[in-house]
């Protein structure tokens, strides 16, 4: 009885050694509720939409499209976009094109370390259906099986203009309160984890990275 209760509430962390299990939290992540007052939630969403900090983690060829965003030509600073080198402080994860299995592992770790609400932009065609890497042995085909995606920007490669348009679109979605990817992730946590573990064969990290 106690055992079944504990497996329901905690994560196994089976990939870790005995010693490492002491170091990591094994509590299940919880969904978070919006603020009870709607005006407060709307205001919070407005603040979130106007201050998008992008995690500076180039996960594929699309990472090269992120650099010009900050230059004089595109100037994403206007929209409150800034780069953040640490996942703790950033709120937007731009998946730059293809994600190989080795990168996917790091993407999952970084994504789980980000503090909610967090948003994922899938850039390019590869996260949608594999793109030109549809038959590659090392590149995943459907990114939304592993992490929830809030916005897709397709193309191969989308130019920075499109990325700026996508950011504006994401802001609209956030202001309407429709970006609940982080909650969806926790809601379907077991499904996502099963998919992730199907692909990542050497799972040597905790089941949820706090």
């Amino acid at each position: 009885m106690i055992k079944s209760l504990s497996t329901e509430d905690t994560l196994e962390n089976a990939g870790l050694t005995e010693e490492e299990q002491q170091l990591f939290c094994n509590a299940r992540p919880k969904q978070y509720e919006p603020y009870p007052i709607k005006a407060v939630e709307d205001f919070a969403n407005w603040a979130r939409a106007n201050s998008l900090w992008i995690l500076a983690f180039g996960t594929g060829c699309g990472a090269i499209e992120l650099r010009p965003l900050m230059t004089a030509r595109f100037d994403a600073n206007r929209f409150g976009v800034a780069g953040r080198p640490t996942p703790r402080q950033s709120s937007v994860f731009v998946i730059g094109g293809y994600a190989s299995v080795k990168t996917l592992k790091r993407i999952i770790r970084s994504y789980e370390q980000m503090q909610g609400p967090k948003f994922v932009i899938a850039l390019g065609i590869c996260p949608v259906n594999g793109g030109m890497y549809f038959d590659s042995y090392n590149t995943i085909n459907q990114f939304d099986m592993y992490l929830p995606v809030d916005l897709y920007i397709t193309g191969c490669m989308p130019r920075p203009e499109v990325l700026v348009a996508g950011i504006v679109e994401l802001q609209k979605k956030i202001k309407q309160g429709r970006c609940d990817g982080a909650n969806r992730y926790i809601e379907n946590f077991d499904w996502y984890k099963a998919n992730q573990k199907k692909v990542i064969k050497n799972w040597d990290m905790p089941d949820y990275n706090w």
Binding site: K102, F134, D135, S136, T139, V199, I200, N202
Partner: peptide, 25 residues
């Protein structure tokens, strides 16, 4: 590059990447 690879080495020509990709991904 391939962490935790459990198939035959993927660049050998007898390895069918499309079939593998559809099964795995």
């Amino acid at each position: 590059v391939l962490e935790g690879w459990d198939q035959i080495p993927p660049m050998r020509r007898e390895f069918d990447t499309k079939k593998f990709s559809e099964e795995r991904f």
